[in-house]
């Protein structure tokens, strides 16, 4: 299986993603410069965190028009696995691959801390190895992670099981207190209807090795590989 990590000007979690994927899956990974328009040979594309284009205008707004994004959209429409983390999630929203938009955090602060995520859907390719309602400890680091969507979209997300992660406490209880940024319905991550595109604000690549004191994020990369192996066989 071959992973690709897209590099926009201003991406800063690309090397972390590259390393985490390699360490968790032992599969080949390549960087993909944002000017590339051909994704042939890749099985999973990761849009990493960072501040693409300096977050000018709106987070993710300018990166969405990088040449690589048309290829990512085609890749996703063909069923390819796409994971957007933090700024990558924001780019997926701007590109229309996922519904909704990001607002400034409701406390107006840049939040950099561990959060607990309740896995609300372990049927996606990205969470396939998680137990039902498993709780993962994964750090967030963002200023614009306050997810918003209209009422109808929210209803659709809920009905189709597209809410994959909610901010919770360590036991999996979701309350207003466990919501760090004001996100509607405590949403930390969503997928598209088909389940092959996932966006999340927390950073699994920053907690994918015991060496770093927390390996909870590793299960996502292992899930992607397991799903791919099931598909190929």
């Amino acid at each position: 299986m071959k992973f690709g990590v897209v590099v926009f000007p201003g991406s800063n979690c690309d090397a972390d993603c590259f390393h985490a994927v390699q360490a968790a899956t032992n599969e080949p990974v390549e960087y993909i410069w944002h000017k590339t328009d051909n994704l042939e040979g890749f099985d999973c594309i990761i849009l990493p965190g960072g501040f693409s284009y300096g977050d000018y205008l709106r987070v993710g707004a300018i990166a969405r028009f990088s040449p690589v994004m048309d290829a990512v959209i085609n890749f996703a429409k063909g069923g390819g696995l796409v994971l957007g983390i933090c700024n990558g999630f924001q780019v997926l929203l701007e590109a229309g691959l996922l519904p909704g938009a990001m607002r400034r955090n409701d406390n107006l602060q840049f939040i950099c801390e561990d959060t607990f995520l309740k896995v609300e859907n372990n049927g996606t390719p990205f969470t396939a190895l998680c137990q039902e309602n498993q709780v993962l400890k994964v750090p967030v680091a963002h200023g614009d992670g306050n997810y918003y969507c209209g009422e109808e979209t929210l209803k659709e997300l809920q009905q189709n099981n597209q809410v994959v992660f909610r901010y919770s406490d360590s036991t999996g209880e979701v309350t207003p207190k466990t919501n760090p940024n004001g996100s509607i319905d405590s949403i930390a991550g969503i997928c598209n209807k088909e389940g092959n595109v996932l966006g999340m604000m927390p950073h699994p690549e920053r907690c994918a090795e015991e060496l770093l004191g927390n390996a909870d994020g590793e299960i996502m990369f292992k899930s992607i590989l397991a799903t791919w192996q099931r598909r190929v066989r």
Partner: peptide
């Protein structure tokens, strides 16, 4: 397309 995000 770019300058505003019609969702918000």
């Amino acid at each position: 397309k770019l300058l505003a995000n019609p969702v918000i």
